[in-house]
Design a protein around this nucleic acid. Structure first.
Length: 472
RNA sequence: GGAGGGAUGGCAGAGCGGACGAAUGCGAGGCUCUUGAAAAGCCUUGGGGCUGCGGCUCCCGUGGGUUCGAAUCCCACUCCCUCCGCCA
């Protein structure tokens, strides 16, 4: 599928899940494949991992989710809720069937003018009905409970994910350049100082308007942000369709990507209109085909969007508060794909390659991390992070996170495709930033700082900044 | 903000109280015919749960109500569309 991989970088990318997607027995796998045909009932059965897997392979699911820190008690609660829900609805259905049968008899009795019998039957039916209603209420409460548990459960990690429960266990796959050259004296100034001195970053002004961690860029600082966006969009234009989505979205839209219900505290919510400010363009893009059945020949569908991103950063108070290390609002170019399960590995590699290539063209040092099972985002089955090195603050800054979400989001958003055989199956979704600008901006400013205090503009950006080569 | 209209299977669209899980058309799959293709004809074509694997049953935006019986009647909610007003 070279057609969507115009700029192959080195092909030594890691293997992102071979065909044995989950490292379990083949029965498990075939059940993964076989159960793509039941996405109709939007209420319970298309959320997160497949409920059927829970029934058929409870140990495998428990083990797989255990790798990312879900306790077996939690999985058991899920299984119990499912069982209880099925029992209740089966009983309810049996009662409904009886009511139905009786009403048929009523019709007969009426026809044969047997009003006494009709009377009796009616009375019995009423009893059944009230019993049915009680049971229906129970069943629906149980359904809500199951639904809730399902929505809270994260995706099953790919077997290739490194073991581990925290970011300590992430694996550095490679570094570029292999050995980071020692930074020169002039590079050892943090970007907030460089930015302030050159008048291109005014954190105080941003704080005045909106509070701390809302940066304000000025002059060439702002221009460089625009340049980065144009540079990236042009870069991906060969294969990715540019989208400018809304940045305020509904609750369902946030649910689909796995950002809700569990992580509500991380997002900005507009209470009056019940809309959420997107934390990433992945959110609206994943809902672009909500409820649709795509044609297999249209896959992979590759999308690209530049949007602002909003994050409350709750729970990280006091950490990384300097400069642009952690901000509430930043701009980002996001790549997103809908594809078949078979295409996913290649698309994942392609997005990673594109993000890497951008960093290389910007002349920044970076490394690629393979996130361990415990550090994955809720929706992801496998994630690679890209971190650029910022010599001024002497830190690695995460500027991209490239995730394969298998069918987790597709299930929640109910996005399927029809294969030539006629059947439907959930698509796979992938996303990755290419790239998140605030931190890239910081790394560029620090890396390109010169002895005289000016900052030279990376060659790749000069065409987008009127051909100039220096910010001074 | 105001006034209307609508939500049914992959899509379009009928059904307006009793055999409707749902007509019809299109699409899709299979078969026949053909050197092949087209055309034509025949058949199949939503999903869940239970099951003694022969079936049974539930689901017509969501939730309530009326009724012996609801896709069909009533109420509420959600979403979509049209028109008017206001505004970039």
């Amino acid at each position: 599928m070279e057609r969507f991989n115009g700029q192959a970088v080195n092909r030594s990318q890691p293997s992102v899940g071979d065909n044995e997607v989950f490292d379990l027995d083949s029965g498990y796998l075939s059940s993964v494949r076989a159960c793509g045909h039941h996405a109709k009932q939007a209420s319970f059965f298309n959320d997160m991992i497949d409920v059927r897997l829970l029934r058929t392979e409870p140990e495998a699911v428990t083990a797989a989710l255990g790798r990312r820190g879900v306790t077996s008690a939690e999985v058991e609660a899920l299984i119990a809720a499912d069982r209880s829900h099925r029992e209740l609805s089966a009983r309810r259905d049996r009662l409904r069937a009886q009511v139905k049968e009786i009403s048929r008899q009523v019709a007969d009795a009426r026809r044969s003018a047997d009003s006494k019998l009709a009377e009796q039957l009616t009375a019995r039916s009423r009893e059944f009905r009230s019993e049915e209603q009680a049971l229906a209420a129970e069943a629906s409460a149980q359904a809500d409970q199951l639904q809730h548990l399902l929505m809270m459960t994260p995706n099953i990690p790919a077997s290739e994910c490194p073991e581990g429960l925290s970011d300590q266990d992430n694996v550095v796959l490679r570094q570029y350049p292999e050995t980071i050259p020692p930074s020169r004296e002039c590079q050892r100034v943090p970007h907030w100082e460089v930015g302030a001195r050159l008048g291109i970053l005014d954190l105080e002004a941003g704080a005045k308007m909106s509070g701390s961690m809302f940066p304000l860029f000025k002059g060439d600082g702002s221009a460089m942000l625009r340049a980065l966006t144009s540079f990236a969009l042009d870069h991906h234009r060969d294969a990715f369709l540019e989208i400018r989505p809304p940045t305020l979205v509904r609750t369902e839209t946030m649910m689909s990507t796995g950002h809700l219900p569990k992580f509500a505290d991380d997002a900005y919510h507009l209470e009056r209109d019940d809309l959420w400010a997107i934390p990433t363009a992945e959110v609206p893009l994943a809902s672009m085909h909500r409820g649709e059945i795509l044609r297999e020949e249209d896959l992979p569908e590759l999308l690209c969007a530049a949007t602002p991103c909003f994050r409350r950063e709750a729970g990280s108070a006091g950490r990384d508060t300097r400069g642009l290390l952690r901000v509430h609002e930043f701009e980002k170019v996001e790549l997103f794909a809908f594809c078949t399960p078979e295409q996913a590995e290649e698309v994942h590699g392609d997005i990673l390659a594109r993000a890497e290539l951008l960093i290389q063209e910007l002349g920044l040092a970076y490394r690629v991390l393979d996130l361990c099972a415990g550090d994955l985002g809720a929706a992801s089955a496998r994630t690679f992070d890209l971190e650029v090195y910022a010599p001024g603050c002497d830190r690695w800054l995460e500027v991209s996170s490239i995730s394969w979400c298998s069918d987790y989001q597709a299930r929640r958003a109910n996005v399927r495709f029809r294969s030539p055989g006629g059947g439907t199956a959930f698509v796979h979704t992938l996303n990755g930033s290419a790239l998140a600008w605030a931190r890239v901006w910081a790394a560029v400013i620090e890396t390109y700082r010169q002895d005289d205090g000016s900052v030279s503009i990376p060659k790749a950006l000069r065409p987008y900044m009127g051909g100039r080569d220096t910010i001074s």
